[in-house]
Simulated scan of single mutants.
Amino acid sequence: MPVTDELSLVFGALADPTRRDILTRLRTGPITVGELAANYSMSRPAISQHLAVLEGAGLIVRTVNAQWRECSIREAGLDDARAWVDEQRADWNERLDLLGEHLGARRAEHREHESAEDTESRREERR
């Protein structure tokens, strides 16, 4: 079954190191397909396939400028992914904080129990 939700398309596109590298190169501004292809030891059709995946995920825009095909980053392309990651991070931070509080309470209970046992042992030694 093909993936169609936007978030899965974005993460799927980002799963490939070549596509992540392409996005890194596009941070400086629009680049022609030929300039991008020159950076990789793969065919132009393979580069075009990577670009199609990035475009399908909404991460880049391809335009025609005279006889050149240029690619540029679509600024809002990562917004949904960033929001999802931020939500997950907040959720996990909250869970870890609660776990820390729980473990702290358990340690305090354990120390109180040990202290009570020590006190009882000293009483018995005196008898």
Results as ranks from 00 to 15, higher is better:
46 A>D: 12
111 R>A: 15
25 R>I: 15
113 H>Y: 10
88 Q>K: 08
96 L>A: 10
97 D>W: 00
55 E>H: 08
31 I>Y: 02
2 P>D: 11
21 D>E: 13
58 G>F: 08
24 T>A: 13
19 R>G: 07
45 P>G: 06
94 E>S: 08
48 S>K: 04
104 G>W: 04
6 E>Q: 02
110 H>T: 15
54 L>I: 01
69 R>I: 11
125 E>K: 07
46 A>I: 11
25 R>N: 06
123 R>V: 08
89 R>T: 12
52 A>C: 01
22 I>Q: 04
26 L>N: 06
13 A>M: 15
47 I>C: 00
57 A>S: 10
41 S>N: 15
47 I>R: 09
39 N>K: 10
59 L>V: 06
84 W>F: 02
28 T>F: 06
77 G>A: 01
21 D>V: 09
124 E>A: 03
35 E>A: 15
95 R>H: 11
68 W>L: 12
90 A>I: 08
70 E>V: 10
52 A>G: 04
10 V>H: 09
117 E>D: 11
110 H>R: 05
1 M>Q: 03
79 D>W: 04
52 A>W: 05
99 L>D: 09
14 L>Q: 11
41 S>D: 11
65 N>I: 13
86 D>V: 10
119 T>C: 12
54 L>E: 14
86 D>P: 04
7 L>P: 01
46 A>S: 11
37 A>R: 11
62 R>C: 05
19 R>H: 08
80 D>C: 00
30 P>S: 03
94 E>A: 13
103 L>Q: 13
122 R>T: 09
51 L>W: 03
83 A>E: 13
72 S>P: 00
37 A>I: 04
23 L>G: 08
111 R>Y: 12
50 H>D: 14
56 G>N: 04
25 R>G: 07
86 D>M: 05
81 A>W: 01
113 H>E: 14
107 R>P: 03
29 G>F: 09
99 L>W: 03
70 E>S: 04
81 A>D: 00
118 D>S: 13
77 G>S: 01
56 G>L: 10
106 R>S: 08
26 L>M: 10
63 T>Q: 02
100 G>D: 11
121 S>F: 15
42 M>R: 08
76 A>S: 04
36 L>A: 06
126 R>E: 15
43 S>E: 01
31 I>W: 11
15 A>E: 08
75 E>H: 02
110 H>Y: 14
31 I>D: 00
77 G>L: 00
50 H>L: 15
88 Q>S: 11
22 I>N: 01
106 R>E: 12
28 T>E: 06
